[in-house]
Design a protein around this nucleic acid. Structure first.
Lengths: 189, 189
DNA sequence: AGTGGAATTTGATATAAGTCAAATAATCTT
DNA sequence: AAGATTATTTGACTTATATCAAATTCCACT
């Protein structure tokens, strides 16, 4: 269960020593984004981690001209393009505010250095990466075993706020379903 | 590119200090498995990491009675059920030798303790988890954007040894294609 | 080498989901 | 509020892939 992993992160966060927490704070600043503005564009190197304070954002890439939404971010979620962030190479993905966002932006380089000083932060990074990998496994499971209707129903059950707050086009893309099919699925329920 | 991440791991491995390497070795033993034998069964807690020395293995779960193969392991690959390993809870997945295997088995608990003593091992764990997450992202991309034929062709190009060494049933399941359809795809090429 | 069982292929059919096109409905703008 | 844009729904049709069933091919074992 991905939730167990999340609670491990929260426990770890609670037990972080004061110095480490302060150090991160110094490498972090708040930034606001308008609707449709990009936190990261393809081609840029992802030099920050973005934690959503308020608003909604999405991550997507272009696949022969079509946008494929891969992740949706709400309050407290952390958004990065993993490949670009970890390897510090140009991103294939965009991160975009789909509602006006307030974001807590932590510098990559500074965080790297802090991880050397504070073992707790290195552990935190590991826990967060494990959490993301478990989330990816769960998502892969859905693509591997569920049809379009089942994927939508599960989303409705597990993340009802997605359905309320996200335009259908993005939802469809996120679920790997065409816009029209998703519309029909909704009509049928 | 997942390869860049792999080379980062290898570099890190090369620069690990002697003590850390020795310590891991002490927490590790070699074990042999016959064809079809399980390295891990669903319901068990994954108390070891399994590195393949020789042979071939697969990871799968049961989804209403059907086996879904999620990963295939060759020489040097590391096999764990991530959820069970990281959270030390009963596994939903099986890991099974599909050819006779020699495996380097590292105890979870010992590795956890060593990560506390040797920062290099903690870093290594992070790098390996990042690598796995990037691999999962790439796989998700394939399910998200490619049809059955494209997925098979990509596998053929990137992992030709899979196609030689893995029974079609497992390959089909791994690719999320029915056995019959995969057979037809192959006939068509 | 011959036989039993598994793996793979081939055939016929059903169905989920995509695509293209048009019609509504919702929303934003001035 | 009216028009303009954008988002969503509905319709008609096509296509990829699953399913069920049978035939064949491939191997392992005595």
């Amino acid at each position: 269960m991905v939730e167990n992993s999340l609670s491990k992160i929260q426990q770890h966060l609670a037990s972080l020593d004061e110095k480490a927490r302060e150090a991160i704070e110094n490498a972090t600043h708040i930034k606001k984004y308008q609707k449709n503005e990009y936190l990261l564009q393809a081609g840029e190197i992802c030099k920050s981690g973005f934690q959503i304070v308020s608003g909604v954002a999405r991550k997507f890439y272009l696949n022969d001209g079509k946008e494929i939404t891969t992740e949706l971010f709400f309050t407290d979620d952390i958004a990065v393009s993993l490949e670009s962030y970890t390897l510090q190479q140009p991103s294939k993905e965009f991160i975009q505010a789909i509602e006006p966002c307030t974001v807590s932006v932590t510098n990559y380089q500074a965080f790297q250095e802090l991880k050397q000083k504070h073992k707790g932060l290195l552990e935190l990074d590991l826990l967060m990466t494990e959490y993301y990998a478990l989330w990816l496994e769960a998502r892969l499971f859905q693509f591997h075993t569920m049809d379009a209707t089942q994927r939508y129903m599960l989303l409705l059950k597990q993340q009802p706020h997605f359905v309320q707050q996200i335009p259908l086009t993005y939802l469809a893309s996120y679920l790997g379903i065409s816009l029209e099919t998703l519309s029909r699925i909704r009509a049928r329920i």
